[in-house]
Nucleic acid binder design. Structure first.
Lengths: 201, 201
DNA sequence: ACGAGACTAACACAGCTGTGCTAAAAAGGA
DNA sequence: TCCTTTTTAGCACAGCTGTGTTAGTCTCGT
């Protein structure tokens, strides 16, 4: 039988090369050939795994969300509801090199997906991730409410949207001005926001 | 003497053609020739006003921030401090077609500017606008504080950062999912956030 | 060993890319 | 009218683009 190569792993390897190209030179530089060179293969090899470029872009974008989802799924919900909430939300924030890389790439794809035409499946990916994060915010707040930790005059749905917007805004700031908006500062702001939602003990 | 053409106006006209191309097909499609076609001129004409492509991109990005700045400068600060604050902050949000177009383009440029190399002046533009919006947030909160409308246990600097992040997050949501995050909803969330900062009357 | 099937590299092709260059058209004061 | 300066269009060039195709290499169960 044939040479055995982990197809899925290879595709991820190529997608990660695409990430590096996008981070270094922007999405405009993400051609089949530059990606192949970055991955250390010939262009033909890349095209064996991804027949066309759109498929590669789509896969690479999907990989970002899968990585985040995997990390979120791996979280052990221990500690107080607040601690848990913080831990979950932090996973969506670019607070270390790995997550900053993911976020930069995600931002490039998001901008591309905003283009009306030719966006194909990119638009759907954005919506899915967006909805997922909102759901997460709502779930976390509900958990807090069930613990009685939340103020009882809150509209949870509204607070979920506000929290969601804050998280996305913080992510943007952490990515764009990491010096001014340090990881510690982001955590501090997020914790502070949650505290404003808490009932007085 | 020569044919007289408003040089500045022509440059803006070309930059707006670039905006349309970026919105329609993404920044990857923004070549000199596509932009010229969109503007209705030859590529040579475009290159007369912008000798190289980087200059065009940079100018087009700068134009976005200038447009926003002009609108902000034109605001008449009437009404309560809260009303004023809302009016200013709304100007940075993509709540109508014009501002949504600007934001989409801005997002594409921001993603491109994140690329480490070749970003040239784009990075500086992002920083400038970012700092400007933060300053605005801080000024507005200070104005509220001087009116005695703000709770007195607040750390204004921290609240400015939180407000800034919320505004950017809301802008993103309004741009990405305009159906779910309607202009009315965005205004509502922003007003609600400000209310949580207000002293009880 | 051998050959079926998975994998790789290389070339071809038409079309687009940014930029340099040149010739011509337009315009209005002299 | 003519002439200077600005403005415009077009071509040329080398290089890159996505994709189709083809010939080859490698691996491993039999």
């Amino acid at each position: 039988m044939p040479k055995i190569v982990d197809h899925a792993a290879r595709r991820e390897e190529i997608a990660e090369a695409l990430w590096r190209v996008v981070r270094r030179d922007g999405i405009r530089a993400a051609s089949v050939r530059t990606i192949a060179a970055e991955a250390g293969w010939s262009a033909g090899a890349v095209r064996y795994y991804f027949p066309d470029q759109d498929g590669l872009l789509s896969f690479a974008m999907d990989l970002v969300s899968r990585r985040v989802t995997e990390r979120v799924a791996a979280i052990q919900p221990k500690g107080s509801a607040t601690t848990i909430a913080l831990r979950y939300l932090e996973e969506a924030l670019p607070l270390d090199a790995e997550r900053r890389a993911e976020f930069d790439v995600w931002m490039a794809f998001m901008a591309q997906a905003q283009a009306e035409s030719g966006a194909g499946g990119l638009r759907a990916h954005v919506d899915t991730v967006h909805d997922g994060l909102r759901q997460l915010c709502e779930s976390l707040l509900n958990a807090l409410a069930e613990d009685g930790a939340l103020r009882d005059d809150l509209d949870v749905r509204r607070e979920a949207e506000r929290l969601h917007a804050l998280v996305d805004g913080l992510a943007l700031h952490a990515a764009i001005q990491p010096d001014r908006t340090s990881p510690a500062r982001v955590r501090q702001l997020l914790r502070h926001h949650l505290e404003t939602l808490m009932a007085r003990q």
